[in-house]
Structure formats: structure tokens, C-alpha cells
Design a protein around this nucleic acid. Structure first.
Lengths: 191, 191
DNA sequence: TTTATAGGAATGAATATTCATTCCGTTTTT
DNA sequence: AAAAACGGAATGAATATTCATTCCTATAAA
């Protein structure tokens, strides 16, 4: 076992960035080692193989994201406020963990995800489905399948964040507020 | 030069499917050859290498998609009708060319795209930007950067179509109409 | 009409390259 | 000094690409 946990974290950080930018298959172990400033062999001291590494990363960030959404969730309040909480959670999470959401999204249906990763991701979807189902019952959310509503919000938001990451847009408070409003209008029930 | 154009098309068809399903890096030339029922070497009679193949494919479908959006565009009409045209164009294109839009989307910022591919994609964005810019000037479209509006629509739509392709949702007329309405509400100016 | 021949197209085994993983000598920690 | 952690060259498997050979098809000679 390693003395400090620094190298393991360095490896995970580099892997996250590279997997998000180039994808799993286009990212080589030597690339990760180089970026993390460790020897290629060192990676195998911490992770049995490349798939274990990517699954560890995936589960780690899915869990963090779930926590970001659930933390301080305003249970008894209005649906718009709950939506705001979830949306802010996405933004906060994205700011704190630069490439994480994009990594999750682009690897969500990858062939190398193990059962545990898929299950964790299922939990995440459940949180969002519950929100939309409740909203539809109250007549406050558009009558579309929850899966579709989630896809619209997530797809749109992540596509947008890609532009921000690439530098084509700046993540100003004004822009983000506008995007939240746009997403809300996409899912809410209109009179 | 080949006697018929069949093999080249077979190769392109197989490559499209496999690139869309597995991604560029996880798709091997022998896989493509096998799926297209040609020898691996045959692929190199038509395409100098794997990157030329993927760029050819990318440019081909970006061009087709541009045409689908521009064909019969209702120039002098209302903005909602124009939006409908563009949205229907997306749907029609997706139905006609099963994996094409998803392939385009997932490979849009890939490291192996050449200058020509990037430029073609730029043209495509321009069509949509022009639409949104005009709409904002008329006060009919939400005041957000056009790039952001495009990201929201495209990201959402494509994420949704992924669910359909995977079989989690059915592409009924009702669903599609609802999604169009949702997307429209996302981008339109609200009083 | 049949047979020969040329030349492009197709093939897939052989080669070159890339990459995940292992191994072992060196360095660091205890 | 012993044990653990490291680095990075070495290994072997997988993959892109090449190329010598075979297969077609079309034209021409008989």
C-alpha cells in the first residue's frame, strides 16, 4: 500500500481529464502516466487494469454527483425551487469537477462499464425520474416520459458546458441563469 | 477505379454503424471489413487510411444534413414555422440515416477531424445561427447566445434519439411532437 | 461462338506499429 | 537494514497497413 494517497489521486485526475477529452479508447496508459508524472507501472500498483481504473473513476464521480443533487434538497417546497436546486447542483458539480460530468455522459453506455457502474448510474437517474414524476402528478411538468425530459435537460446542459470548456462561451452568472430558465421552460407544463 | 460503387458504399455503411455504436478508436479496420463483407485490404483501395475514411464519412453526412435543413426552407414565413421545418429536418434526417446524426455529434470535436471536416461543420452551425440571430432581432427568440441555443436543442434532441435507438423510448409521432414543443419553449421568447 | 489475354479489383497473409501489462533494478520510507 | 513504492524498459498481444497473388470482367483474337 502506498505511503500517501497523492499518486493515486494524480492518476485519477489525469485519467479523468484524458478520458473526457479523448475518450477511453484513445487514451493510453502511458499518456495517463506521463500526465500524472508517474511511471506506467505505478498505475498498476493502484489499479488492476485499465478497465478497473475507468470504472473506479466512473463510480466515484457518479456518487459525488448524486450527493451534490441530494445535499440540502428542499423537500417540502415548490417544484420550481426544487428544479433550481437540481440545476444549481449540476452547475456547482461541474465547476468543482471540471471534466467529471462530461466524462460521465460520454461513457454512460460504454461497453467496458461493469455492473456496479451501471447500477450506480441507475440510482442517479432515479433521483431525476422521481422529481419529474412527482412534478407531472402535480400538473406542473410537461407530459412527456421522464426519461425524455432528463435527456433534454442533460443533453442540452452538457452540450453547452462543452462549449464553455472549449472557450466558445463564458460561464457568466447571466448566461447560466438564462440557461436554467430555458431548461425550465423546456420541461414545465405550459398553460 | 472500381467497376461498381457498391463496395465503397458497403464500407461506408458499415463504418458509419460501427463508429456510431463503438466510436472511432474502438472500431477496428477488420471489424469494418468483416461487417461490409470485404477483405481488409479492400478498404485501402478506397481510402488511404482510417482517418481519411472517418473524415470522408463525416463530411458526407454533414453535407447531407445541411441539405436536409435547407431544402424547402420556408423563407418568408413565421419563425415558428421555420423552427418546425428545421426540427422536422432533424427528424427526417435521423430516420433516413439511422446513425448519422449521432455519429456526427459524437465525433464533432474529435482529434482526428481534418480542416475540411471542421469547416463543413462550421457551415452547418452557421445555418442554425442565422436562424436564431434573425429570431432574436424579431424579439421572438430568447436572448441567449445562438451557440448556447443550438447546444440546448441539439444536445437535448440527440440525447433523446440515443434513448430511442437503444430502445428505451419509442419514436411515436406524439412523443416527437411533444419534444418539438419542449424544444421550442426552450428557445422562444416568453412574454 | 469460343478461347485467350489484359488490367483493374479484391483478397488476406505478412509486416510494422501501438499499446496494455509485467518485471526488475533503483529509490524512498520505516 | 529491511520493506515498500517507483519508474521505465521489456514483453507480448492486438491492430493498422502493405503487398504479392488471385479473381473478374471486358475486349480481342481465333
Amino acid at each position: 500500500m502506498p505511503t500517501s494517497t497523492t499518486k493515486r489521486d494524480d492518476i485519477l485526475d489525469s485519467a479523468l481529464t484524458l478520458f473526457a477529452e479523448r475518450g477511453f479508447d484513445a487514451t493510453t496508459i502511458p499518456m495517463i502516466a506521463n500526465d500524472a508524472k508517474v511511471g506506467a507501472g505505478t498505475i498498476y500498483r493502484y489499479f488492476a487494469n485499465k478497465e478497473v481504473l475507468v470504472n473506479t473513476l466512473f463510480q466515484h464521480y457518479v456518487t459525488l454527483f448524486k450527493e451534490a443533487l441530494e445535499k440540502d434538497y428542499p423537500e417540502g417546497t415548490g417544484i420550481r425551487e426544487q428544479f433550481h436546486h437540481l440545476f444549481q447542483g449540476m452547475i456547482r458539480f461541474t465547476n468543482e469537477h471540471d471534466h467529471a460530468l462530461y466524462f460521465i455522459k460520454t461513457h454512460t453506455s460504454a461497453y467496458f462499464l461493469d455492473a456496479e457502474s451501471r447500477e450506480q448510474f441507475g440510482h442517479l437517474l432515479m433521483i431525476l425520474e422521481n422529481f419529474f414524476e412527482a412534478g407531472k402528478q402535480q400538473g406542473q411538468i410537461r407530459e412527456l416520459p421522464s426519461k425524455a425530459l432528463i435527456a433534454i435537460i442533460f443533453g442540452g446542459f452538457l452540450q453547452l458546458y462543452q462549449l464553455i470548456r472549449v472557450g466558445e462561451l463564458e460561464a457568466s452568472a447571466e448566461l447560466l441563469a438564462g440557461v436554467e430558465e430555458s431548461c425550465w421552460d423546456a420541461v414545465r407544463h405550459h398553460a
